[in-house]
Design a protein around this nucleic acid. Sequence first.
DNA 1: GCGGATCAC
DNA 2: TATGGTGATCCGC
Length: 386
Amino acid sequence: KVQTLSDITKMKYEKEMVQLCGLLEKERNYDRDCVHVDMDAFYAAVEMRDFPQLRNIPMAVGGYSMLSTSNYVARQFGVRAGMPGFIASRLCPQLEIVPLNFDKYTKESRVLSSILSQYDPNLSMGSLDEAYIDLTQYAAIRSSSVRHKRIRYGGDCVCRLPLVKDNDHPGVVQSIEREEVCTKCSHSRKIIEDEVEFGIGRAEIVREMRFRVEQATGLTCSAGIAPNFMLAKVCSDQKKPNDQFELENDPQAVNDFIKELPTRKVSGIGRVAEAHLSALGITKCGDIITLAHLLPCAFSSLGVESMLRIGLGLGSNMHSRDSKDSSRKSISLERTFSPTSDSRFLTQMLYEFCEQLIEQASSKIKSASGLSLKVKLSNFETLTRT
DNA sequence: GCGGATCAC
DNA sequence: TATGGTGATCCGC
């Protein structure tokens, strides 16, 4: 009798997987309001805000070796984050490549986190342009609606993006219009001042957060709302750009959502894990549970557990997003160069790396504690000879 | 404990 | 012309 791999692993692992799922199920929790906020095409959006001539042309931020991000016009040409600039230029010859301006992005990031931290003082920034917010407390306390003033721009002025879509009207309480001449581009522009109202409930609160971010920075963001951060992160991608997606804290809703979700959408499943899963016939997160007995063929026990968590729509529990320790554990330095066996060059480069790392480490220690770090680099030639 | 692989951004 | 840099975790040795 011929037995397939699936038959064998089913006998061997099915019981164990069912048991493991049962254990993990006990962690399920629908009491939290988790939000992931993600700025839209962040670096590109900052440059487009500051340089209006970039707004309607394909552009990307980075260099000829690598692009950090591209605007939505460039994406229509297939220009994507992480792509080498010279390849992007072939895809889109008109592409404008703007160098990185990290100081600016860091400033915007601080504006973002200062607004969002009013909703969760323990928020965690995933990077300059994304934040994980636990809204549970704030949403439970908020019992009345909140009003804000909204500024929109119309007319020919190109110095501000028409950030607020005309059909994107939260409760407008009152609206005042006036005309003026823009001092920058000397075009006439219409300024519309609205009084807008945001209700209670987590989706309205997230609308308000996004509204405030946009008014403060001139940049839009997208958000995902879900019972845990793993799901919230996926949700923030669902309605990008400039919108939000709420996954109800409800078993049926979560199950339906996870069932059809491609595995690669989940943070933590990269190209390799996707390929491993795909080899097992697992392409959607729902498959992870139906074919759970195959997982031990390709993953370690921790890997299996992490996959089951994803398949069940549970949070990551231990590390990363749900309880993040923000303290740095290492500093490092790397550089790419063309292949060489010039050992003097390599030694010299290593030496400079060490000097720079010592400098970095001591300056960080100094600013954190006031103490001075002294390191002596000795016998370097011998140390690095091999 | 260490280097390699993997992942995110 | 030209395919990055930083930090983290996990695994096998």
